[in-house]
Amino acid sequence: MQSCYIKLAAHTIKVNAIYETTMEFCKEYLLPNDICGCDFDLEITVEQKDIELERQKSESEDIKECIPIRHFSDEYLETLAVYRQIAEQMVDYDTLLFHGSAIAVDGQGYLFTAKSGTGKSTHTRLWREYFGERAVMVNDDKPLLKITEDGVTIYGTPWDGKHRLSNNISVLLKAICILNRDETNHIEQVSGRKGYPLLLQQTYRSAEPLKLMRTLELLDRMIENTSIYSLGCNMRPEAAKVAYEGMQTVTSKERRETK
C-alpha cells in the first residue's frame, strides 16, 4: 500500500493506494508527507474490490453506449476509484464533482457542460486561442465546485480528461454554459428550471440517501446563485467571442451586491 497527501478544493486528503502510479497521477497536487503527518481532513483507501467495481461500471457504460468493451489497466481504474471516494466525502464539505470543461478569463471562471461528444473541450480550446494569455484552463473534464453563500469556486484536479488540461488553481465561477451544436453561434440566458436536468446529470451523485440529499441541496443553491446560459455553437473561432460577450450581462445577484 502506498500513501500520500494531496490538496483538493482547499482540503488535505490522505490517499492510501495500491499502485505508485496513482501518486504520479496526482503529482501536481501532492503535499510533503512529513509536513502533513496526521493533519488531514479526510482519508480514503482503495482496495482491489474498488478497482473491480470501476471495471464493472466501465463495462456497463460501454454496453449501454453500444461500443466495444474497453479494457483498462488496474492502475488506471485505481485513479477512478480514488476520485469516486473523494467525491463521496467532499459533499460533506459543500463540494461537488462536476462533469464539464472549466476555463478562466481575467480571473473569472466559466464552466461549459453538455452531453458527451458535443465538444466542450473543443470550445474551450477556441477560448484559449481567442484570448491568448488572458485564458487559463482550470480543468477540462471533472473539476470540483465548492458552493458557499458567497458563490461557487471552481478548483482544478488531476482528473482532467484525455488531453490532461488543468491547473492547480481556483477561481470564482462567473457563469455556467450549456453547449449545443448548431449551424450558427448564438447565446441566451436560461432559467435554472430549464437547465436543471442536464446539470443534475453532470453532477456526481452518491447512492447513499443522505449524501444524495445533500448533493441536491447544493445543486439547488448553485443554480439559484449562478447565471446559466445556453449556447448554440458551430465550433468556429467566433463562437468564443459570442459566448464570452453573451455571458457578461449583470446578474441579479451582482445587482444586489452593488446596492
Rank of each mutant, 00 (worst) to 15 (best):
G37T: 04
E43K: 14
D39N: 15
E47A: 07
F40V: 00
I18K: 12
K49W: 05
F40H: 11
D39T: 09
E20P: 10
K49F: 05
C26W: 01
T21A: 14
Y29W: 15
E43A: 14
E43I: 03
N16D: 11
D41S: 11
T22Y: 03
A17G: 13
L42Q: 10
L42H: 08
I35V: 13
D39W: 06
L31E: 05
Y29D: 04
V46L: 11
K49T: 12
L42N: 07
Y19W: 13
P32D: 13
M23I: 13
I35A: 11
Q48C: 05
E43S: 15
L30G: 03
D50E: 07
E47I: 02
F25W: 08
K49L: 06
E20M: 09
L30V: 06
E28N: 15
L30W: 06
T21I: 08
E28I: 02
Y29L: 03
E43H: 11
V46T: 15
D39R: 13
T45C: 13
D34L: 10
D39M: 10
G37I: 00
M23Y: 07
K27G: 02
K49G: 07
G37Q: 11
I44Q: 09
T22S: 14
Q48R: 12
P32I: 02
I44E: 09
M23G: 03
E28C: 12
Y19Q: 05
C26K: 01
M23L: 15
I18M: 11
A17I: 01
D50Q: 04
E20K: 15
D39G: 08
